[in-house]
C-alpha cells in the first residue's frame, strides 16, 4: 500500500488526524521537500513528532528513480509525504500511476493547501478563481522578465472576471542558489508591476497556516515596496469583485479604498 499524505501548511501540527495515523502505521516513510516545505518545522522535528524515520527523496529520487518507494510499498505499508496536499499544484499523480501499474494499492489523505488557504484567508470565493500559474525567478526560465504564459493566464482570467492564484517560485538545493530561495510577495509584485501593470490590485498571503499569517491587498506597485516577513508567500490577482469580496478585502486585508 502506498499512502500519499499531505502535511498541511505550516508545521508538524498541520497534518490531519487521518494523516498522523497513516504515518504511525507505516513500515517506511518517504518525503519530498523540493517543491515546497513546512516553514514552521524541519525533518528532525517531524520525525520526533511522529516517532519515525523519514527518508527524504530529491527530485531525481522521485521522478527518475522512484523504485525504492515503490518496492517498499509493494512489500509493506509506505507513506509518501509532501507539504500542503500531495496532489494539488505539485501533482504526484505520476508516482501514483506508476504504483498502480505495478498493482500496488494507493490512497490519498488530503490536507489544507495553498489553494484553499488563498480563498480561506482573503475572502475571495473559491468559485471565482480561474487557472493558477507560477511566477518563476527571472533567471530560472527561458525568457526575460515574466514569462508570457503568466501574464496571459492572469489576463485571460480577468477577462472572464476570475481571480488568479499566483504561486511563487521555490528553489531547494538548486545549483544557482546558496541554501534555499523563496520568492517573496514583494519580489513578485515588483516583477508584475514592472512587466505588466503596477496599478492592478494584488492580494498577498504570507505564512498561510501559521499563527502570524498575514493578508494584505493593495496596488501591485505599492505591494512591491512592502515587506511581508518570512516565507512562504503567495499572491492573488483578483478579477472583478463581488460585493462581499470587496468588503472582505477592505476589512480583512487592509485594502485602501482607492485601490478597490
Amino acid at each position: 500500500m502506498l499512502t500519499f499524505v499531505g502535511l498541511g501548511l505550516y508545521d508538524e501540527a498541520s497534518v490531519t488526524v487521518a494523516g498522523r495515523d497513516a504515518i504511525a502505521a507505516a513500515d517506511r516513510v518517504f518525503a519530498e521537500f523540493y517543491t515546497s516545505r513546512l516553514i514552521g518545522t524541519d525533518v528532525a522535528a517531524l520525525e520526533a513528532h511522529h516517532d519515525t524515520t523519514i527518508e527524504r527523496r530529491d527530485r531525481a529520487g522521485v521522478e527518475q528513480h522512484p523504485e525504492p518507494i515503490l518496492d517498499a510499498a509493494a512489500d509493506g505499508d509506505a507513506v509518501f509525504l509532501t507539504a500542503g496536499d500531495t496532489m494539488i499544484s505539485t501533482t504526484h499523480v505520476d508516482l501514483r500511476m506508476r504504483a498502480a501499474d505495478r498493482g500496488i494499492d494507493t490512497r490519498v489523505i488530503h490536507a489544507p493547501t495553498a489553494a484553499s488557504a488563498a480563498a480561506g484567508l482573503t475572502g475571495l470565493q473559491n468559485y471565482r478563481f480561474g487557472k493558477a500559474t507560477t511566477l518563476p525567478f527571472p533567471w530560472a526560465h527561458g525568457a526575460d522578465g515574466v514569462p508570457g504564459s503568466v501574464t496571459d493566464t492572469i489576463e485571460a482570467n480577468r477577462e472572464r472576471g476570475l481571480h488568479t492564484l499566483v504561486y511563487l517560485d521555490i528553489k531547494v538545493d538548486h545549483p544557482r542558489v546558496d541554501g534555499d530561495a523563496y520568492m517573496t510577495a514583494s519580489q513578485a509584485a515588483d516583477l508584475l508591476a514592472t512587466n505588466w501593470d503596477a496599478d492592478a490590485l494584488g492580494v498577498v498571503v504570507a505564512r498561510a497556516g501559521a499563527p502570524d499569517a498575514t493578508v494584505r491587498a493593495d496596488r501591485l506597485g505599492a505591494l512591491a515596496d512592502a515587506d511581508f516577513g518570512s516565507p512562504l508567500h503567495l499572491l492573488v490577482v483578483p478579477g472583478s469583485l463581488h460585493h462581499i469580496e470587496r468588503d472582505a478585502l477592505r476589512e480583512l486585508a487592509g485594502a485602501p479604498a482607492d485601490a478597490l
Partner: peptide, 12 residues
C-alpha cells in the same frame, strides 16, 4: 505543462 515551473530547465 500548463505552468512554467513544471517545464523549467530541470525538466526540458
Amino acid at each position: 505543462h500548463e505552468d512554467a515551473i513544471h517545464r523549467g530547465p530541470a525538466q526540458v
